[in-house]
């Protein structure tokens, strides 16, 4: 039973996908120049973390409810983060007419 078609029934598959999502998110955050691009990459990282929780929930946790509840909480926090982050981006855009992260260095004071 080691065919590629039975991968869905093993924990390392999901954890590897989660690790790859995390790596993609990190790469996006460090390489993006715009604030919205960084927010998109942060969503990727959150998706990777959430996928890890769900995978452990399915394969190792005794109570398969906990991980699902945690994933729901992660979704709520991610929604709040996106709302706040995007409103800050819009406020910055109104001030600087740009969403490039380097144009916001004036905020250092």
């Amino acid at each position: 039973m080691s065919s590629a078609l039975t991968l869905y029934n093993s924990l390392p598959t999901y954890l590897t996908v989660g690790a790859l999502l995390f790596g993609l998110g990190v790469y996006g955050i460090v390489s993006r120049r715009t604030l919205i691009g960084m927010l998109i990459a942060a969503e990727l990282i959150l998706a990777g973390a959430s996928l890890n929780f769900m995978a452990f929930n399915r394969f190792t946790a005794p109570d398969p409810v906990t991980g699902q509840v945690f994933a729901l909480f992660i979704m709520a926090i991610a929604a709040a983060e996106a709302a706040i982050g995007l409103s800050i981006v819009i406020a910055l855009y109104r001030q600087y007419k740009s969403i490039d992260a380097e144009d916001a260095v004036h905020l250092k004071g």
């Binding site: 390392p12 590897t16 790859l20 790596g23 990190v26 460090v30 394969f59 190792t60 398969p64 409810v65």
Partner: peptide
């Protein structure tokens, strides 16, 4: 940096022997 992070995590995932427990619900 990103490749190092995800590569190290992947190696860790594959090398670890994950326990399997019984479900209570």
């Amino acid at each position: 940096a990103a490749a190092l992070l995800s590569g190290a995590l992947t190696v860790l995932v594959i090398r670890t022997d994950w326990p399997v427990r019984e479900k209570i619900t």
